[in-house]
Design a protein around this nucleic acid. Structure first.
Lengths: 221, 221, 221, 221
DNA sequence: TATGAATGAGCCTTCATTCAT
DNA sequence: CATGAATGAAGGCTCATTCAT
């Protein structure tokens, strides 16, 4: 897909926080919005240029390829934010002396806010993850490396504390993530609502569901 | 999108099992495969024609529009199978004297087999559901009407029998479906595997997860 | 354009009044209407077939070519009707003992009725005469041969009787025909009106205009 | 038909004589020629591109639509030239102290030269006026507003001076225009000749015909 | 004879990309 | 750096025409 050199340069640039031009910022902003609402394939570079208030040439001067622009939109979000993010999240959220349930609730709320601040980007990533095999193959290992491993450890930890059931950690994790990710997709991609009200109840419901399922607790006599 | 007349005719044709030409079948087959693997937007009618061993004109003679071809691929699956399917599924799966857990397991296994027989189609639908707002708006009400309502009743029933916890049925349902649908998407769309081995263990895991969550059952003294 | 053989056969058929099939009649009817309102180039054979209630194949079985169908629509009207028509018209209209003015009025009224009965066909011919160089080159000589020559003689006759001014007959004729033809085109092609009321007044106006122009007759003292 | 914005821009561009690119000029030139000789419907954009020595994409970058290209060819001619033209023509041609006959002769000669300079364009307009209902409906009101009204006043004026006969002015005008327009169509569209020799005789003939018709002036004794 | 499925060339149009300015 | 005119490959679609039944 992308010419490695340009892409690397792009990433390097983001890494070093080299100042993105005003124009570059506008381009990326426009691209995010339009990719999110119409999908990558249905968004033309000329439209992006128009919305960004920039000439089409400028887009290609900076990103070389439409494909590259997509990566420029997604990768910094993933490759940059994800690792350091993971770090921070676990600092904020994983407190050894708390229960797994607390951890779970904190994690969900934390990520919910993060995605709520990055709705559009999340849409783009979800859509293209399904649509674009290349992207999938590029992103998933990254995700596994940075997130899954860490979460696995957490689960192991709580299992060792006897809070979680005895299934293999990956299975526990998979179930858990299916619910959380499914919830986010439904919330931000499939059935987004304008309002920004925080839905405490939903968080409780999810946490409770993950922890205890839907069976009525039988009152033991 | 589609000219109603042609589309209706297409559906009518499917309904009555009027003989689809040999060529029509090949076209739809090719389309399903290619839409599934590359996505609708990245599949050209000329490629479909080539793969189907048919002239491009033939595609348009039968379906009028590429859009229509997509619908011709998806809608019969949805609009035709779904209602009668729902009927049958519930007959096979919902036995009043069984527990909810049994019902749930039966449902999951039943649908797993169905999707396993229609992997490609399922891929297409999931991908386009995210990518194509029109399609989403056309399919979702249908799904709600035929499936959700019915499931809601089932849940109400088991709630009245005291097997399920006291959350509003829609919330119970939403959680449940998130897991099941998430599992299917992961299984057939995101991380498909060639092998067709039935995964009993997974079914058990899911059922158990939905019913009881991941918390270690504390042994009550 | 047309394969001579088929075309000749068509004409021969018309000539001999060999029975046109029911279907053929419907095809030609539909074609005339649609060529008239949308033009030849904007009318597809499939539309004609649909309107005629006939399969597309049938059109080509009979006419071989869309081009041929156009000719089948126009030529019989021209090549058949025109000569015999001319004959009759002049019999009806040209009475040696009448004035040129009477002849002129009779001619205009006669042709007006004829075209009024064949509006659609006239539209087709006028439109395609401009649009289709081949057709023009085929039809004009025919017209010259059958109509112009005869009219020229009539004008010569009346000139010899001192009723018409001394310009070369062709010029007189050209002026005269420009008005008449222009009137018919405006009446039937450019600004057709639904109503079929005969417009006596217009006929008078035209005749008067052709004969005497628009200058106020100065009363000679 | 056209996206208003692009079209307006095109017209604005013409209005301000903003520099049409070299390529644009070539495109329009080629289009005029080919539309004139083959008609709009029989001219493909790829042929135009070839003749203009331009890529097909360039045509659509500038005109967006084949339809628009037609309008870009015709409308500036009509909407721009016509009003200011009308103004100038009447200044040059209508001198109050001259006779109607002088006015008529001057008008015909003036317009003849104009059309002689714009033969191809005139062909295109006449052909498409018959073929394209939309265009007709767009152009005619314009013509009425700018030309007919003015001519009507002129005729009223000369009628009041007793030079013209007492028919309603519109009828006088209609007759007159039928002859003039018919003459131009015959001259430039139906039977164009290569030579550019000015045909004084014809002008005289027409003027004389319009003024006095074809009847031999009877010498009153 | 009539049908209508099939064809494939050609049409208009879009769009990512290049490059001279 | 930015521009925007130019490109041309590719796309969806139309349509006259053919041919097996």
């Amino acid at each position: 897909m992308p010419k490695k050199s340009l892409l690397d340069e792009m990433i390097a640039q983001t890494k070093l926080s080299k100042k993105q031009t005003d124009k570059q910022q506008k381009i990326v902003e426009a691209a995010v919005k339009m990719f999110a609402s119409n999908g990558y394939a249905n968004t033309s570079t000329s439209e992006i240029a128009k919305v960004a208030g920039v000439s089409e040439g400028t887009i290609f001067r900076h990103y070389g390829t439409k494909d590259n622009l997509l990566l420029a939109v997604i990768l910094p979000f993933i490759k940059e934010s994800l690792p350091s993010m993971a770090e921070n999240v676990f600092k904020e959220v994983f407190l050894e002396d708390e229960s797994f349930e607390s951890f779970l609730r904190a994690l969900i709320i934390n990520r919910w806010h993060f995605l709520s601040d990055n709705k559009e980007l999340f849409k783009v990533i979800v859509k293209e993850l399904l649509y674009n095999e290349n992207l999938k193959n590029e992103l998933l290992p990254f995700f596994t490396e940075n997130i899954l491993k860490r979460l696995n450890k957490v689960i192991d930890y709580y299992k060792s504390r006897g809070e979680l059931m005895d299934l293999p950690s990956e299975k526990v994790l998979k179930m858990m993530l299916t619910v959380i990710f499914g919830y986010f997709v439904s919330e931000f991609v499939l059935f987004p609502v304008a309002s920004d009200e925080i839905k405490d109840k939903d968080f409780d419901t999810i946490v409770r569901f993950i922890m205890d399922g839907i069976r009525k607790e039988t009152v033991e006599g």
